[in-house]
């Protein structure tokens, strides 16, 4: 464990706080990006996708394979997302569509899918793919540095992604139709909505987001091996459960809360304490707010309305 004298704060408070801020951004981006695809598919379709990590991995592999073929990284990332969308739509048509609103069954089916995907990647592409160096270098302040890609670029992308999704699902015709389909498929069909298409599109968006996460983390993941999907799954699940039913606000608030405790814990007392603190907060949040943060806010609003 780290002694008190090594606390960054003890020598250079301003630089120390900057370091903490960048660590928080880094952690926040990771949780948002790991969670958002899972949250869309769970929140909109009632399917728990235990293969979520492997969907991200498909994005990682797609990006890395295209990149190693000599294509520039940004284009390789777009290819990685496209590959994951196609993969997601094939999976939706062949497997997932049989499991809408069958929560437990969907877990077993997608868990099996996860094993198949990981093993196929191993058989087809071997033990590992060459890693991709993190681009953009670092910013330097006092004795410290922080990675520009992980602590500035990815957090900005994460926030833009949430804003984009919010607009898509609340301000567009597609969003309204998609939500109507999830809320009450029969009425939606009676109103002339092609619910099948809505399911495919929503699942495609969820897969695309997972693919985007994979593409973005391909150069920030270190080793690219068939078992890396699990690196994302735990944070994603915790954040979905803590966030509660409202997909976008839930993801945002859960990622903010969890990464704050993770970053402060890691900063003050080491990565072990950071992880423990994050898990403790998750347990505490579930005990106090069984419907997640957004579920609690909703209940509170309803109660207030009832009182009035």
């Amino acid at each position: 464990m780290i002694g008190l004298e090594t606390l960054p704060l003890s020598t250079s408070p301003v630089y120390g706080l900057l370091a903490l801020m960048f660590q928080f951004f880094n952690s926040f981006a990771f949780i948002v990006l790991a969670t958002v695809g899972l949250a869309i598919i769970f929140g909109m379709m009632g399917v728990i996708n235990l293969a979520h990590g492997e969907f991200i991995l498909v994005g990682v592999y797609g990006t890395a394979l295209v990149f190693h073929a000599g294509i520039p990284l940004p284009i390789a990332m777009i290819a990685g997302v496209a590959i994951t969308v196609v993969f997601g739509i094939v999976v939706e048509r062949t497997i997932v569509r049989h499991f809408y609103d069958r929560l437990l069954d969907s877990m077993v089916a997608t868990w099996g899918l996860a094993l198949v995907v990981a093993q196929l990647l191993l058989i087809v592409f071997g033990s590992s793919l060459g890693s991709i160096s993190t681009p953009m270098g670092s910013v330097s302040y006092g004795p410290y540095t922080s990675s520009v890609y992980r602590s500035i670029f990815l957090p900005v992308v994460a926030v833009l992604m949430l804003v984009g999704l919010y607009v898509l699902f609340t301000r567009t015709e597609f969003g309204i139709k998609a939500r109507a389909t999830i809320e009450d498929p029969e009425t939606a069909r009676a109103m002339g909505i092609d619910t099948d298409r809505m399911y495919i599109t929503t699942f495609g968006i969820g897969s695309g987001l997972a693919g985007l996460t994979g593409a973005l983390y391909a150069p920030a993941l270190g080793s690219i091996t068939p078992d890396r999907g699990s690196a994302f799954l735990i944070e994603a699940f915790i954040a979905v459960v803590v966030g509660g039913p409202s997909v976008i606000i839930g993801t945002l608030s859960a990622a903010g809360l969890l990464s704050m405790f993770n970053a402060v814990g890691s900063f003050l007392a080491g990565t072990f304490v950071g992880q423990m603190l994050m898990l403790l907060v998750a347990i505490f949040a579930l005990r106090m707010l069984p419907n997640g943060i957004t579920g609690y806010v909703k209940d509170w609003q309803q109660r207030r309305r009832a009182e009035e």
Binding site: I2, T6, P8, A19, Q23, N26, F30, Y144, T145, I234
Partner: peptide, 14 residues
């Protein structure tokens, strides 16, 4: 299962 080494790196720099 830790993949994020930003705090570790900052402490080493310190």
């Amino acid at each position: 299962d830790e993949t994020d080494f930003s705090s570790v790196i900052n402490r080493i720099q310190e």
